[in-house]
Design a protein around this nucleic acid. Structure first.
Length: 344
DNA sequence: CCCACATGGGTGAATTGCTA
DNA sequence: TAGCAATTCACCCATGTGGG
């Protein structure tokens, strides 16, 4: 009996797999196909960026891009949920999506209670690639100076208390080959936004003209969720229009003319490296309730491995496809032939 | 999930700026 | 240059980031 028990428990042990977190439900979950889509886009992008990083001798960065290429490579499914490991990089569409949702859920309950939320965009004149690194640092420094100044004025009873959330983002204009770093800011009222706008224009034009009045957009937020989604975009767009002034409203799924500017994205991620993209000023975020589920051992699970050519996860035993994702033919065309690695 | 690391927010202290 | 105001610095630690 002893020997038998021992054998059984040993069997159990080697067949166990450790999984982290709560997992993602698989039944009737449309996000599974979206995951496959994001993985296909991300893989195409990081492969292009690996070449660019290697060519520039940035081998550490190339390693991080490879890390993203292997993001969610192995899936474990068990009891209707699946578990995997995430790379958590900014250029990974899946990991960005997860982080975006997390941040959105943290900020939403605060913004929804603000009396009259406004969305302010603070920007500077468009710049060339060679100035990107310095200008991003300048934008960040200018902004923290303004924050310091406003806080101090308030502390001395000479200015309003400034409360807002901010995110740093950078667009690429492929027609002009310029970059446009900017802050998206949500304030609880119009007053704060006008105050920040005024200080921004003043600070940016101290040495030379860097920011005009009309380039700083301010609108009242009617739909808090939409406003937050607008702010929490995470750094840079992967699929972009060669002509961003193109005002034609895109239909859902209309990708005609879109390109992936791999080198521009690489430049943006480099310039933003080691900088926080999000932050709250003037208030503390509520604690995230700790659900205290660390990890568990599962037996009777299925394991799946991602096959880049098939753009799907394949069951290690049955060879069944996990998502049965079929890439949109136009998206496939973009990823294969519109990956722009040109120097600019 | 946990942990390590480092940016940057909060705040008192130091420095710089302004005016008479 | 005194005296006060405004701005910037320095330090602590909360939190964004990324690895396992």
């Amino acid at each position: 009996t002893l020997a038998q028990n021992r054998t059984i428990s040993f069997d159990g042990l080697i067949n166990n797999e450790v999984v982290f977190g709560n997992g993602t439900p698989m039944e009737n979950n449309p996000s599974i196909l979206k995951r496959a889509n994001k993985k296909a886009i991300t893989n195409a992008l990081v492969l292009a960026m690996v070449d660019i990083a290697n060519e520039k001798g940035e081998f550490e960065r190339a390693k991080k891009y490879w890390n993203t290429f292997h993001c969610q490579n192995k899936l474990i499914s068990h009891n209707g949920r699946y578990y995997t490991d995430y790379c958590k990089n900014r250029w990974c569409a899946t990991c960005c999506g997860i982080r975006k949702a997390f941040i959105l859920n943290r900020y939403y309950p605060i913004i929804i209670n603000w009396e009259e939320p406004h969305l302010l965009t603070l920007t500077i004149k468009a710049i060339k690639a060679e100035d990107l690194h310095n200008k991003i640092n300048e934008v960040i420094n200018n902004f923290s100076k303004i924050r310091d100044r406003c806080n101090k004025r308030h502390q001395r009873g000479k200015g309003m208390k400034v409360i807002f959330i901010k995110s740093l983002e950078c667009n690429f204009n492929a027609t002009k080959r310029t970059y446009n770093p900017h802050y998206h800011i949500i304030t609880p009222n119009r007053e704060t936004a006008l105050y920040l706008k005024q200080e921004w224009i003043k600070e940016c034009n101290k040495t030379s003209f860097n920011a005009g009045n009309n380039a700083q957009h301010l609108i009242k937020i009617e739909d808090v969720e939409k406003g937050l989604v607008e702010v929490i975009k995470y750094g840079a767009k992967i699929l972009s229009d060669p002509d961003p002034t193109h005002k034609r409203k895109r239909n859902r799924g209309d990708m005609v003319g879109l390109k992936v500017y791999a080198r521009a994205l690489h430049n943006i991620y480099n310039a933003m490296n080691n900088h926080r993209l999000y932050g709250s000023i003037g208030f503390k975020l509520p604690e995230v309730e700790n659900e205290n589920i660390s990890f568990k051992y599962v037996s009777n699970y299925e394991s799946w491995t991602y096959q880049p050519q098939q753009m799907d996860w394949i069951n290690n035993e049955t060879e069944k496809k996990f998502t049965e994702y079929e890439i949109d033919s136009y998206l496939e065309y973009i990823l294969k032939t519109c990956m722009d690695k040109e120097t600019f």
